[in-house]
């Protein structure tokens, strides 16, 4: 593997963390995701990829997931207004 990093799964936000991890291989096909011993493991064999790039992917996935629920609510309100 060119790079591997691990992140702990905090109990209080495990649902968001696990969901974020689940979407990563679809959006970043060169990244593999495993879950073991209360940790998320991201790895890639892509040439040129490093731990920093995996960390950025993790931050992006986590931020998107954190904002997704609020986003859905805001979007639904907006469409309801537009439909009036």
């Amino acid at each position: 593997m060119a790079a591997t990093i691990c992140f702990a799964i905090p109990e209080e936000s495990s649902a968001i963390v696990l969901s974020a991890a689940r979407w990563i291989p679809g959006f970043y096909p060169h990244v593999m995701v495993d879950q073991a011993d209360g940790e998320i493991v991201l790895s890639t064999a892509k040439a040129g990829a490093d731990a920093k790039s995996l960390e950025r992917i993790w931050v992006a996935a986590l931020a998107t997931e954190r904002l997704a629920h609020a986003g859905r609510v805001r979007r639904a309100q907006a469409f309801a207004t537009l439909a009036q």
Partner: peptide
């Protein structure tokens, strides 16, 4: 303050879009 629905992508050039 209300935030608009935002999505984030790690780009190939190292930015967070």
């Amino acid at each position: 303050m209300t935030f608009l629905p935002l999505r984030v992508r790690a780009t190939r050039s190292g930015d967070m879009l």
